[in-house]
Amino acid sequence: MQKLFDAIRRSQIWRSIFRHGYPDTPRNRTLAVLSNTFLHLHPVKVRRSGIRLSYTWCMGGLTFFLFLIETITGLLLMFYYHPTADKAYQDIWALREHVPLGIMREMHRWAAHLMVITVWLHMYRVFLTGSYKPPREFNWNVGVILLVLTLLLSFTGYLLPWDQLAVWAITVGSNMARATPFLGHEGPGASLLSFGGLNLVHAGDDARFGLLAGRFVGEGALLRFYVLHCVGLPLAASVLMAVHFYRVRKDGGISGPL
């Protein structure tokens, strides 16, 4: 058995992938991190204080992990889902009826809820440890945008099942846009923007209309939310996460007493 393992480890294939021996010596542990694309997100050595669970609560890491779960389960769901008013609901229903032990939708939904919670808690811990203080001001701001993107991802996804729960939650949520000062037709100031007695801002062109592609949550909104949910927002979030992780390292790794 040992011989077999040794043979595998000496094979050209193995050595083409892993360029170091088993990581139990300082040299190999260094190489294990440096030569791996993903592990290389980390520095080779970290301060003992920063990696304790009681310090970071692992919340940033879990948020990222949940984002990965969302990507995988979401991709699988996309195979079965059409973003049209007459098919969306049936597709979701079919996922429940026709897939034995299918839990992709459940995984996707519960992980999404959890991600909202973990991102809040991550922000909470970053604040309480004062980790937004110099030199990490910028990364805190990247984080705030990630927080908004996480909420928007969740919000756009909420509509996709196209049931009563979904449509009305999005209706209530997007009704706010109607009241945007100047930009919503029921917002303060909007009535001042008129031209020769003609209102420039009305239900057919205000902020809410732009969000929903219509005067109410209809097929246009479904497609718009679908595209944002599956392409636009995840892309933006991925780019910002890359920036976020890079900055964690460039700002000197996980914070600790100066």
Binding site: R29, V44, K45, V46, R47, R48, S49, L53, Y55, P257
Partner: peptide, 20 residues
């Protein structure tokens, strides 16, 4: 606590990788 523990550095592999 953080200052005391922070004096010591440990290897990412295995200490951090295992936690994750």
């Amino acid at each position: 606590l953080e200052a005391e523990l922070g004096k010591k550095k440990v290897f990412t592999w295995p200490d951090l990788v295992y936690i994750e």
